[in-house]
Simulated scan of single mutants.
Amino acid sequence: MEQFVAVAVAHFLALLIPGVDFFLIARTAMTSGWRAATGACLGIATANGIFIAAAFSGLSLISHPTVLAVIQLAGGVFLLHIGVAFIRSKARFDPDQKPGIAQATWMKNFGLGIASGLLNPKNALFYLSLAAALAGAPPLTLIVYGAWMFTIVLAWDVFVAIALGSQRALTRLGRIVPWLTRAAGGFLVLFGLGMIATISLQLLT
Rank of each mutant, 00 (worst) to 15 (best):
A124Q: 02
G192L: 12
Q103W: 13
L188T: 08
T151C: 15
L170E: 05
L201I: 15
I196A: 12
G192E: 08
F78C: 05
I50A: 11
I25Q: 00
R172H: 14
G174A: 15
L173W: 12
T31S: 12
S116R: 02
K98H: 13
L42Q: 01
A14F: 03
N123D: 07
K122V: 13
G43T: 02
V9M: 10
S200T: 15
L188V: 08
A197Y: 10
L125F: 13
I143S: 09
P99K: 03
A45H: 03
C41H: 01
V5C: 03
P18T: 07
V189A: 09
I162W: 15
N123G: 15
A14N: 04
G165F: 09
P95D: 09
A124S: 12
A14Y: 02
L170Y: 08
F4W: 06
L118E: 04
F93R: 02
I176M: 13
F86L: 12
R168C: 08
G33M: 12
V70H: 01
G19A: 05
S129T: 14
F110C: 03
L119Q: 03
T105K: 10
L112P: 00
T141G: 10
R168H: 10
V5F: 14
M1Q: 11
D157Y: 06
I62C: 04
A184K: 04
L119S: 03
F159T: 15
G58V: 11
A163S: 13
L24G: 04
F159V: 14
L190K: 05
G76V: 09
I176Y: 10
A137T: 13
G117D: 05
L61D: 05
T31W: 04
V7N: 04
F23E: 01
F56I: 04
A85T: 09
W148F: 15
L79G: 04
T181I: 06
A91E: 12
F23D: 02
L24P: 00
A133H: 13
G165L: 07
T205F: 09
E2S: 13
G39D: 07
L13T: 10
V20S: 12
A161I: 05
G43S: 06
Q3C: 02
W148D: 06
Y127P: 01
A124M: 10
L204G: 00
V144P: 02
F78G: 02
A137G: 06
S60N: 13
S57G: 07
G165E: 04
T105G: 01
A54F: 13
D96F: 07
G19L: 06
G43K: 03
D157I: 08
S32L: 14
T141I: 11
R88K: 12
I152V: 15
V9E: 01
L118Y: 04
L140K: 10
A137F: 11
L15R: 06
A147N: 03
L118M: 13
T198N: 13
N48T: 09
S200H: 01
A6Q: 11
F51P: 00
G49Q: 06
I87T: 09
N109F: 05
F51L: 00
D94I: 07
G136N: 12
P178C: 10
I82E: 00
S60M: 08
G75W: 04
I101F: 01
A104S: 09
W106E: 00
V177Y: 09
A26N: 03
V67L: 08
S32M: 13
W148Q: 07
D94N: 13
V160C: 10
L61G: 00
Q167Y: 07
A115E: 02
V160L: 15
K90R: 14
T141R: 09
Q72R: 14
V20P: 01
T198V: 06
